[in-house]
Nucleic acid binder design. Sequence first.
DNA 1: CTTGACTTTAGACTCAACTCCAAGGTTATG
DNA 2: CATAACCTTGGAGTTGAGTCTAAAGTCAAG
Lengths: 134, 134
Amino acid sequence: MRIGELASQSGMSVDTIRYYEKIGLLPTANRLASGYRQYDKNSITVLSFVSSAKKLGMSLDDIKALLAIELDKSAASCETVKGFIAEQLLQVEQKMDQLKSIEQAMRRLHDTCCGGDESALCCSILQAMERGDV
Amino acid sequence: MRIGELASQSGMSVDTIRYYEKIGLLPTANRLASGYRQYDKNSITVLSFVSSAKKLGMSLDDIKALLAIELDKSAASCETVKGFIAEQLLQVEQKMDQLKSIEQAMRRLHDTCCGGDESALCCSILQAMERGDV
DNA sequence: CTTGACTTTAGACTCAACTCCAAGGTTATG
DNA sequence: CATAACCTTGGAGTTGAGTCTAAAGTCAAG
């Protein structure tokens, strides 16, 4: 199959597939005599793998590392794979914690303001923000 | 005070302050005869306000909108300010939900894998990702 | 008067992850 | 065989939020 069909089968754009090859995320594709890239069912699996990783919020660099393991499975252990995911999980948890503390700060601010239709001259939200008190 | 002192008082870099003025986030500064920008205590308050907004994860565009309210407080109401924060809060909550579902998916994946030191050929993490099953 | 620290500007560069473009080559269809 | 629909490449542009540079002007201290 050529790149257009792979794109429609995988849900990725032709440009994205070429981009992934260029940055070394995807292995270089075989070429037909015409110079066209040639793919098979296995390529769909690989792109499905990449899609999964993207859904999990991984960076392309991290996906590249994990795909290297995937494409040489027999050389890696479950331990390695699980450890990799554990690391990603840790990063997600850190982001969550940051976001949670932002949410809390924002809710605190929100709750101190009366929300009435009087002028905002004494608005406790604005005042706290002026003081850097968030 | 000149820009260097404002920078050290506010914790922002000289470049950042000039950048904020350029994109219209900060009002254009008064100039000395030399052409140097001139600031006062009030400028520190404004930058402190901007810092607070950044700590709350707001985009510069949103900060610009909120700062317009702050700089013309008497024209706005607490209702408006509180509503603005409520919107931001909503966005943060949406991000949290996305992150939460990523975390759950990742934890599910993580927990299905034995994590042993055998080859990853049958690793349930890799297999689920190949299937797009995340 | 010189030196060093400060300031000015326009404009280029960074990161991530694409997306788009132009100019050309190939293939499938009528 | 003409035409449309595909494919190729290198390279430029996008977004957000800065950061850095070069070349020039200003100011305070010794």
